[in-house]
Design a protein around this nucleic acid. Structure first.
Length: 146
DNA sequence: GCCAACGTTGGC
DNA sequence: GCCAACGTTGGC
């Protein structure tokens, strides 16, 4: 079981919008970066990730679940670009800010910190659980193992 | 709004 | 296959 992080500018696509999309979810479209695409190709249905608001907010705000493996991104005519489908699973009662993440010794190796431009990235299990706790969310619930 | 870091493109 | 030019991301 792997864990992930998905970035979005909230004025383009927010966690609120993701929640409004409900159980059937949406495709995580618009990624035009090979590294990010390759991470999506590695995702399996049922895996969980964080939803991160970039630019405005700059915080992890919720948890999402992969509900469809990588397939063609219909917003591109180029067959190289693929995406997974996601649905919202839970809010973080207290969003965990980038500032708080950077200030935490246990999170200093997060890709969010070391490669700030990558929009889809892996998160370690310990990092995932740590951020859930910081945000007031039971990690087991976030991981779907509760 | 600026700009550093990074990725991509295309000429050679 | 190198690298300069350009475009984009995202923190500040």
């Amino acid at each position: 079981m792997a864990f992930w992080l998905f970035k979005s500018e909230p004025h383009k696509w927010s966690f609120e919008a993701q929640k409004a999309a409900g159980e059937k979810g949406t495709q995580w479209d618009g990624v035009r970066n090979y590294q990010a695409r390759n991470f999506m190709r590695a995702m399996k249905v049922g895996e969980r990730g964080f939803f991160y608001h970039s630019n405005e907010g700059k915080a992890v705000v919720g948890v999402v679940e992969v509900i469809a493996e990588a397939h063609h991104d219909t917003t591109s005519e180029d067959p190289r670009w693929e995406c997974v489908d996601l649905k919202a699973v839970a809010d973080l009662p207290r969003p965990v800010t980038l500032e708080a993440i950077k200030a935490d010794e246990a999170l200093k190796d997060m890709v969010l910190v070391t490669n700030s431009r990558l929009s889809v990235q892996p998160v370690g299990e310990a990092e995932f659980a740590h951020i859930c706790r910081m945000g007031g969310l039971d990690p087991k619930r976030a991981m779907g193992t509760a």
